[in-house]
Nucleic acid binder design. Structure first.
Length: 212
DNA sequence: AAGTGGCA
DNA sequence: GCCA
């Protein structure tokens, strides 16, 4: 075995049903970015307010039957864009297929998301530790796809005080969590300034979920 | 608490 | 960074 035949891992187990799939989405990234860029021109991302009255660091847009929303009324899913009261556009097939394939690779067959949340991170933006608990069916996993500049994903446990694993996510990486890890706390560390040839000075994360 | 601020 |  010579040094030059070492390949990067394509499946990295995290904990209790979660895994990191480095570069899993790379074959479709140009098509993915074209869908996302077009979407963001038509559905400009908005800065949501938390129930406690703070502004979120990231800006947000959605695709699919259900978009994730936050306001003084709480967190949840809405069939319409709160800024326009119009329905969200459908999730493009390339994104649906990618999400199902990543879930299958992670051990979750038959994943069909009905919600695609887009979080846009500029340099300095972050996401505090939180649990995804607004979905009805927690037997369905979460699939997260990274585009653009890198970020450190923080993956903890079922308690907010649990130690977090630091995952360096790059363009084309996918993370899947389900099973016991479905409710684990997770977040994103402050994003450092960088340039990506496709997305420029930003990171876009797609979070695919079965909301209802 | 998808948040901030205090202390190290 | 960790904790509340």
């Amino acid at each position: 075995m010579d040094l030059f035949s070492e390949q990067p891992p394509d499946y990295v187990p995290l904990a209790d049903g979660a895994c990191w799939l480095p570069g899993f989405a790379l074959p479709v990234m140009d098509e993915l970015w074209s869908c996302v860029a077009q979407h963001l021109r038509i559905y400009p991302p908005q800065q949501m307010q938390t129930p406690m009255g703070y502004l979120m660091s990231v800006t947000t847009s959605s695709m699919g039957d259900w978009g994730w929303v936050s306001s003084a009324n709480g967190y949840g899913y809405s069939a319409v864009n709160p800024a326009t009261q119009q329905a969200w556009p459908p999730i493009p097939p390339v994104i649906l297929h990618l999400a199902s394939a990543a879930a299958l690779k992670a051990g979750y067959a038959g994943f069909v998301p009905d919600s695609c949340l887009m979080n846009i991170y500029q340099a300095g933006n972050k996401m505090g530790l939180h649990q995804d608990k607004d979905e009805k069916d927690t037997s369905q996993p979460i699939v997260s796809v990274s585009l653009g500049i890198p970020a450190t994903f923080l993956f903890g446990g079922s308690k907010r005080s649990d130690k977090t694993q630091k995952i360096p996510l790059h363009h084309g990486d996918v993370v899947v969590w389900g099973g016991h890890s479905r409710r684990f706390y997770h977040g994103v560390a402050q994003v450092k300034p960088a340039i990506h040839p496709l997305t420029g000075q930003q990171r876009i994360n797609l979070t695919l979920r079965k909301a209802r």
